[in-house]
Amino acid sequence: MEISVMSGKGGTGKTTVSINLALSAGEKIRFLDCDVEEPDAKIFLLPRMERIEYSTVSIPVIDEKLCTYCGKCAEFCIFNALAVIKKKILFFERLCRSCSGCWLICPERAITEGKRENGIIRYGEVGEISFMEGELKAGEETGYSIVRDMRKIPYKKDLITIIDCPPGLSPTLLEAIDKTDFSIVVTEPSETAFHDMRLSLELLERLKIPCGVIINKSSGRESFIEDYCSKKKIDILLTIPFDMEIACLYSKGIPFSIEIPLWKNKFRDIFKKIVKSGKSL
């Protein structure tokens, strides 16, 4: 079973929910930090990193000995990653989306498929958690290929996976929630987070992914969120108050469910509830 944790708006508490859920589960967990632009979960989980792998994307490799500069590849490339100027062929790797078009259509077979690094996947262990994070090189166009690679790594199917998603509603997010069995949308009582929560729930409905909401930084004035969820028949799984103790622990990188047993129990309860609902499907 795979559980994704998303929010739309950044900073609402995706990572907080993901790590506390993983630490409270009471069983072995696979944890995927898919926020590839800013992977932060390790700061809280402190995993022992055991190995890294470079994540790669396909790129064209051009054999200039065979190239006749006919320009067909550049003409085909919708991403403008190739240009042919007189007797010169230029490749702009950051624009390439690895669609394979150029090496498929080259009449001289001068282009073959090669690889380029665009990020790193790190593997680690901590307690009951088998940890994995993807990190995109700064300035890379998009990280969805890293997330796709991470999601494709084989694992024992009885393990439960928790996926800490990237913010926004980008293709990278789409890869992170794709075919997950349940998605938690983390929100907070602000107009902006509420706005993004609605978009997230719409997307999940379209993809037919069962979901629930967690309200973070609650001030007790979030009836607008509750009303919306009850109208849409979406469970509010948990409400976490805005609390100086929780904020201070967060700032020090300490997951609050470790320090406050009451919260460990609450997270364990919702974890069990989600797993149970997944099994009944």
Partner: peptide
Amino acid sequence: GSPGTGCPVIASLAGATSVLIVTEPTLS
């Protein structure tokens, strides 16, 4: 600007005169 360090941020930085970074005192 947008969050992260990816393409939208790059697209907003290229050619900007001045950048203000808003941070918070948390490890992340």
